[in-house]
Amino acid sequence: MTSGTSPAAARARRSRAVVVLVALTAASIDLVAKAVSEARLADSTVDLGLLQLRLGYNSGVAFSMGDKLPVGVIVAITTVISIALAAYVWHRAPRAGWVERIAGGAVLGGAVANVIDRARDGVVTDYLHTGWWPTFNLADTFLVTGFIVIAVLQARPERTVAEDGKSTAAHPANTDAGDF
């Protein structure tokens, strides 16, 4: 910590750095997986049991919704949503526990990876197929998993008010390790 930097400012900087690092890592992993999938799965499918590696392209958003819209409109909308997500996780990170910071970074990384992929050629590259669910990619997995973790963390009761009016922890897991 440098002279003049408060502990709260240093913690906020570290918290935000974790989110950015997770987002960059998630986006990089997905973009590399998309490039490898396009190179290796163009004419083949790999059966891994419950999961198949199969190349597909989505010109819409989730479940191909909006696939008839111009690419520029979809890129603009998903970029605005990604910016809103970035603002949320940036603002929330200093008060978040490490689980929420990782989940927020995963959501942001997944969103950014799909925007970058779509901006290149107008479609999102998908490569994971289950047979019972539309084909998807790691970015989608990061988004959904991160949102679920954040929703579960936000839904749990963090504090209760004791009879004397002071706030007390409602659950022993309410520490920095689990809070956002």
Rank of each mutant, 00 (worst) to 15 (best):
151 A>Q: 08
136 F>V: 01
142 F>Q: 09
176 D>K: 05
116 I>E: 07
30 D>M: 05
172 P>G: 01
37 S>I: 04
36 V>L: 15
81 I>Y: 09
152 V>F: 00
163 E>K: 15
161 V>M: 09
157 P>L: 14
82 S>I: 01
162 A>E: 13
11 R>K: 13
171 H>S: 15
141 T>L: 11
136 F>K: 00
26 A>E: 11
178 G>R: 13
105 G>M: 04
130 T>K: 08
12 A>V: 02
83 I>A: 02
76 A>T: 01
145 T>L: 14
164 D>I: 12
78 T>Q: 10
52 Q>P: 14
164 D>Q: 10
81 I>W: 07
166 K>N: 15
10 A>V: 06
169 A>P: 06
84 A>C: 07
44 S>R: 13
65 M>I: 15
19 V>P: 04
7 P>H: 10
158 E>W: 11
35 A>T: 06
45 T>I: 07
28 S>K: 11
71 V>R: 13
7 P>K: 10
85 L>T: 15
34 K>E: 08
23 A>K: 01
17 A>Q: 10
37 S>T: 01
66 G>L: 05
49 G>Q: 02
72 G>Y: 04
40 R>N: 13
153 L>G: 07
111 A>Y: 05
159 R>G: 11
58 N>I: 03
155 A>N: 14
91 H>R: 14
16 R>Y: 03
146 G>N: 02
157 P>F: 13
137 N>M: 05
101 R>F: 02
71 V>C: 08
107 V>Q: 05
113 A>G: 01
148 I>H: 02
107 V>S: 05
78 T>L: 02
16 R>T: 06
75 V>N: 08
95 R>P: 01
117 D>M: 07
8 A>M: 04
94 P>Q: 06
88 Y>G: 07
37 S>W: 05
51 L>Q: 11
51 L>W: 02
167 S>L: 15
17 A>M: 12
34 K>G: 01
131 G>M: 05
39 A>K: 12
20 V>A: 07
128 L>F: 08
35 A>Q: 14
20 V>E: 01
